[in-house]
Structure formats: C-alpha cells, structure tokens
C-alpha cells in the first residue's frame, strides 16, 4: 500500500515537473499570402471542412484545445504537427510549383478517399473532424476540380 502511494506520488511529481518544459506552439497571427484559402476560390463549406479537419496539422496555425497544451500530449502533438506540415502545409501552398501542387492534390484526394486522413487518432479526440460520406464526396469532387484546372 505504501509503495503504491509512493509510485503515485512520484508519477504526480514527474507529471507536474514536465509541465515546465515548454513546447513550441504552432500558432501565427497572420495568414501568409501563399495560403491555400487565399490563392484558391474556396467555397465556404470546403473552407470549414479544411479548417476543422486538416489545418490543425497541415498549416502554420493549430487550434489547440486545453488538454493539448499539457505535457506529454503537447510533445506528442508537436512531433505530429511537424510531420504533417513537412508533408503538406496549406499555409505555404502557393510556394509550390504547379507540378508539386498537382502531386499534393492527388495525394489529398487519395488520402481522403481511402480514409487515411484525417488520422484515426485525431478523429478520436476531434469528433467533428471526421468527414461524413457526403462530405467526403463533396471535398474529393472539389479537389479533383481544382486539380484538373491546374
């Protein structure tokens, strides 16, 4: 009983301790001119889908719920966001060449089509990020249109 108490105490202290280690937040006040929403004519319904389901990990601005500011979740999230942005960053969309935009749009379509994106774990903490079948069709259609127009 005493050892259990001690272990719990140590864990508690460790948990408190790691809160002091700050992580770099993925947040910015300005929307760069290269942003996907600014360079493309994006209808409002698509806009909000992208914002809710994609922009947290694929743009320079993450909308953090409170629990994501706590360690160790914040660390875990930071790694994820860095990875997501390296793969696709909507904030820097227009800095890509046409060839790369086409490539990215293909991947976006494929990932949504095959339910690989948004990530399952993300949906589990973000119910509203999940696309309904209807939304999937809408966004894929729109992305395909954009791809064919490039």
């Amino acid at each position: 009983m005493k050892t259990v108490k001690n272990i719990v105490l140590v864990l508690m202290v460790a948990f408190v301790g790691i809160q002091f280690i700050p992580t770099k937040r993925n947040q910015s006040d300005t929307v760069p001119v290269t942003d996907f929403m600014l360079v493309n004519k994006v209808p409002n319904n698509i806009k909000s889908m992208l914002q809710v389901s994609c922009y947290d990990c694929h743009s320079n601005n993450t909308n953090y719920p409170w629990y994501n500011k706590m360690q160790p979740i914040a660390w875990f999230l930071e790694g994820h966001i860095n990875e997501g942005k390296a793969e696709l960053n909507f904030s820097e969309w227009d800095s890509l060449s046409n060839r790369r935009k086409l490539s990215k749009l293909r991947s976006i379509i494929k990932q949504i089509e095959s339910d690989k994106m948004p990530l399952e774990f993300y949906i589990s903490i973000h119910k509203d990020a999940e696309f309904s079948e209807e939304e999937k069709i809408t966004i894929i259609q729109w992305m395909t249109q954009l791809r064919d127009s490039l």
Partner: peptide, 30 residues
Amino acid sequence: IALVTLTVMSCKDTKKEHSNEDSLHTEMSA
C-alpha cells in the same frame, strides 16, 4: 491545485518571450 497552477503558469511562459533557461529547454525538447 499545484498542477493546475503550474499548467497555467507554463502556458503564460510559452506565450512570453522565453528566458534563457526556457529557451534552453526548448532547444532540448526540439
């Protein structure tokens, strides 16, 4: 209580410019 206080504090900290010690930590965690 300590935990909540600290979380709030550390939130503020990251919003402010980092002190030397903080930036050291940031580098480490990065």
